[in-house]
Design a protein around this nucleic acid. Sequence first.
DNA 1: CTTCATTTCTGACTGTAGTCAGTTTATATC
DNA 2: GATATAAACTGACTACAGTCAGAAATGAAG
Lengths: 212, 212
Amino acid sequence: MVTTRPVADQNAPVVGRRERNKQEKLARIVSAARELFRDRGFAETTTQQIAEAADIGTGTLFLYARSKEDLLVLVFRDQMIETARTAFASLGGGEPLLDQLMQVFTSMMDYHQRDTDLARILLKEIMFPNAIGRQADISELLDIIFGGLADLIAKARNDGRYGQGANPMQVAENLFANYYFSLLTWLGGRVTREQTEHRLRQHLAITIGEAA
Amino acid sequence: MVTTRPVADQNAPVVGRRERNKQEKLARIVSAARELFRDRGFAETTTQQIAEAADIGTGTLFLYARSKEDLLVLVFRDQMIETARTAFASLGGGEPLLDQLMQVFTSMMDYHQRDTDLARILLKEIMFPNAIGRQADISELLDIIFGGLADLIAKARNDGRYGQGANPMQVAENLFANYYFSLLTWLGGRVTREQTEHRLRQHLAITIGEAA
DNA sequence: CTTCATTTCTGACTGTAGTCAGTTTATATC
DNA sequence: GATATAAACTGACTACAGTCAGAAATGAAG
């Protein structure tokens, strides 16, 4: 006997008010955090301000993000994934491997250049802890990058544009390590972006065993 | 006319009481911090405790170290420099370059293995900010590592043990980037030390264009 | 509508890194 | 020794990330 089980209507919709409230709240939090981080910077934004702007209590904020750094992930992960996807998707087919790699990495640097302060924080508080521990989940992003790179290597080998015999995934990791390291020095402010790209190209060339 | 300029005696020694006091205080601070960090760990040690153990006010602590992280540098920089120096100095002469590199990096990993928690903090709070900004000075350490690696490359090329034409310093940076990245994954706890060494060896081999 | 259980929310509170105005100590000069 | 200047020190204080015991909202069942 089915009596009062809720069906889809205004007062008791399928998703449930509870679930919808949660999603709306999360959306408000992310939106508030994005604006504040952009306008005032990460360090200058307090979790109180984010909570206020999102119209929730301070405690609630930490039910949606385990830490202030996790908020950054909520705010930027999708954009970074999109950037990486687009970078790989927009590659021409038969170009030299080194040029393809540089296109991918410079696209990603373009994204970071919009806000280098943020990039520093992303690198330190997100990329780093994620490689080293497990707080904010960026495994999807890393999968896209590593997978994309390994794919490029494998295809280049098939086409005869790359000769070495090493495992494509290992080469991909090697290349990413160099990109990561280049980002560090670039964002450290001691070298220009131009110099960084020049060096990165040479490092990538060393890794794939070609002339820069 | 030279009248009352202080000369070396008990009450007015050449170094000056002020300077000696400072050095003694610094020594007490470093010693207190070392013990506490070792016994309780970094996060569990408060700056208050360090100040108390060193018998100084909390404010004074921050005259000797700009931040809690800087204290770590005071405590460990010399040991790390010593480790790196020894690692390079104890290399045999004519071995294959890849073996030499692995010896250097595994020696450094041995040091970190004594206390991996500390290694994580060192990596995140010291190596990282130092590459990216400029807080705790570890440039001497980095000079030793980069210089030592570049030297190995150059010598190996002279001896015919390494053939590629890239700039030795750039190859050194490339190798270090791979070591740094290996440390990250190792300390992330998702791979064993053995796996890490195996991977590192392959990455280094890729960089110097040889078979692992 | 009423009860009851469960989920979600809240803001006063805690712990700690780092600061700063005021104090003490060391040195220089007479 | 007395005084003045500068260096070094201090601990009460501030600011902020994150917690938690209790309150409020939601939904299930009669």
